[in-house]
Each structure stands twice: as C-alpha cells, then as structure tokens.
Design a protein around this nucleic acid. Structure first.
Lengths: 186, 186
DNA sequence: TTCGAACCGATAGTCAACTATTAGATCGTA
DNA sequence: TACGATCTAATAGTTGACTATCGGTTCGAA
C-alpha cells in the first residue's frame, strides 16, 4: 500500500473506500457490511478486497488516518516537551478518549494494542529524548525508556476500552495508574 | 442458564459442549467452527445454539469455568489477606497470565473487560475489606475503593493482552502501573 | 406408570465475509 | 500515440455464523 508507486486511479479508489469505510464503520454498532462500504464508495466489491484483503485491514486503514489526524499533533507536542508527567498524562488521556469514541470502528480492528503500538513506533526516538528530559528533571522514573512509551500507551488504550466509567472516572484511573511512572520517593 | 432448574440431560449437553468448546477454541488460532464443537461434543448443532445463542456466549461460558478454576482461589486468598500491595500484585499477575495464555479463546469472547469485571463483581465486598486493611496499614492509597479493584483488574487483563513482551517484561509493566496505587509519599 | 413439558437431531435457508476468474477500461511510459 | 501493465466491475462460488422449523425422544412430576 505504497501510495507513491500506485497508479493515480488506484489511489483515488483507496481514498474513496477509506472515506466510505469511516462512515459505515462509525455509524451504528460497527457491523456495517463491506458490500455497503464498496457501494457507498462507488466501487466494485472486488476492488475493495484488492486493496484491503479483509475487514480488519480496512479498519486498520481508517484507524491510521484517524490517528494521524487526532493523535499525531499531541505526539509532536510531547516530543518537544520538557518531560513533565503532566504532558505524558495529557497524551494518554487523548489516546484513551479517541479510542473510546471510535469503539465501533475498533471492534472491526481485531488488534487495537498491536495496531496502536505499530503507529507509535516511529516516534520512539522522540520518546527517548522526552523520557531523558523527564528523568533529568526528576519527574519520571529512572528505569523508564523511550520504547516503554508506545507499549504503555497501547496498554492504556486497550484498558480504557473496558471501562464503563464516565469521563471523570476514566481520568481518575489513568491518574492512579500513571502515578506509578513517577519516581518512588519512599 | 440456571443449572438447578434444568433437566438432567440438558445439563449433560451443556457440560459436553463446554468441554468440546474449550478444546476447539484453544487449539490453533481460535477460529474453530461451532459445527466442529457440536460434532466433538456429540451433539446436534441446534442443541448448541439452543444453550449458547452465539459464539461469544459460548466463549464466555468456557471463560467463566476457567476463571472459577484458575482465578477464584487467588481471589479468596486476597480477600483473606492483610491488604498488602504484594497480594494485589500477585492477583493482577495471575489475571494477566491466564488472559494471555487463553488468547485464542478470548478472541472469540468479544468483550474481555466486561466479562472479567462481571465475574469479579460478586467479590466487591471482599475487596472492600481488603482495601480497608491496606489503607489502615498504609500500603494502599486512601481514595481507593473496593469497587475499583474489579475495574483495575479488568483493565490490566485487557492491557496485558497487547504486550509482546516476555514474562519479565510484563511483570515490569505491571509493577510500574500498580505502583500508582501506593500512597504518594512526596 | 403415565403424560406433558422440555429437550433432542436433522434439515433447510439466510446473510456476510471472503476467494477466484474474466473481460474490459485506463493509466503512464516510451 | 501506442501498448503493456495496472486497475476495474461483474459475477459466481465457498464457508461459517446464525435462524427457523419439526417430528421424535426423554425426563420427571403427579
């Protein structure tokens, strides 16, 4: 799925399919059919399957777009930040909020954690620097590494999905768990 | 599905179905068919659907049995414990370990978090007492409640599934996150 | 021991995911 | 602009989850 090596009409098909999939997957309980996606995209069903071999990969395509639009900006902010605990917490809250909002889509995703971790992986270098700054300032545990951040965020995204608590309750659990990343003072 | 009000032959059917389902779901990648389950159970496919209206509810039945066998004993130990942080950690590790081992089964479960929380709910009273003891001893945060424990365990079960880390790595993340439940000393 | 309710297997059918094929349209390079 | 590679729609078929029905069997209470 490398856009640069694809023919222009194929790229257009993929775009229309992703747009339609987003609409279909998000509406209702996430059980929209792929036939409907193809129909709404104005594309044959075979074309859909050519670009996305199964339902999961299509959902992953939609999720990635969403991620780029809604998480990436926060990510850059964190990478440029000073390593404060609050910055990490804000990013985690964002990830959990988006995951929850997109539950219907995620139901078709299969592996939320793996997909999320995959999307975060390119930012490990940035996390590395972030964590180093936080440790220098004494706001993050010394044994934390940059590679831990994608893992922890993926875990929190998965964990956030199971909560039936409201916004405040979710925030509370997030605080409780992420407090463990602070240095132990005792 | 109340065993006490069911006819003896129906109970026997359910038992054989659950046994077969455990075998079929656990083997391979969790894509075993319900036809195969019925066949291995020596039961008609209609009988299977009569007792378990869909794949998820069958998986939930298997999961509950597993839970009763492998988690419940740890649970009783915690409820009788003195509220130490280590006891809670041991229970969490157990939950994560079992969840991971049963990944193939859980793939058919649909809602791991909800199901887990549901199974833990009857123990809230015990957790309540446990947490109170821990708080009196100064090993658990004062704002923690008994109702938090099932939620946190369900979150950790979901979170544990996304990790590609080994046993030691998983243990490490669990420690990091659960340290947040200790009182803040600073 | 009887008899109705509960349970059973078999079967036929629907629906959606997914596979495979093919003839024709379109892109982009030479 | 010509032409081959890429992309396309249409279509037919397979598989498995799930529903509905029905005549026959078995349980267990009276």
């Amino acid at each position: 799925m490398d856009v640069r090596t694809m023919r222009a009409d194929a790229v257009a098909s993929v775009t229309r399919i992703l747009d339609a999939a987003r609409r279909v997957f998000q509406s209702g309980d996430g059980t929209g059919t792929l036939d409907k996606v193809a129909q709404e995209a104005g594309v044959g069903i075979a074309t859909l399957y050519r670009h996305f071999p199964n339902r999961q990969s299509l959902a992953a395509g939609v999720y990635q777009r969403l991620f780029d639009q809604e998480i990436e900006p926060y990510l850059l902010q964190v990478e440029a930040g000073d390593g404060s605990h609050a910055e990490l917490l804000a990013l985690a809250e964002r990830v959990v909020t988006v995951s929850r909002r997109e539950r219907a889509l995620i139901a078709s995703l299969g592996d939320l954690g793996g997909t999320t971790a995959e999307l975060l992986r390119p930012h490990i270098a940035g996390f590395e620097a972030f964590v180093a700054r936080g440790q220098a300032a004494g706001t993050l545990r010394p044994e934390l590494t940059g590679a831990d951040v994608p893992q922890l965020l993926a875990m929190l995204a998965a964990a956030g999905l199971v909560l039936d608590a409201d916004e405040a309750g979710r925030r509370r659990y997030l605080h409780l768990l992420l407090d463990g990343l602070r240095p132990q003072l005792g």
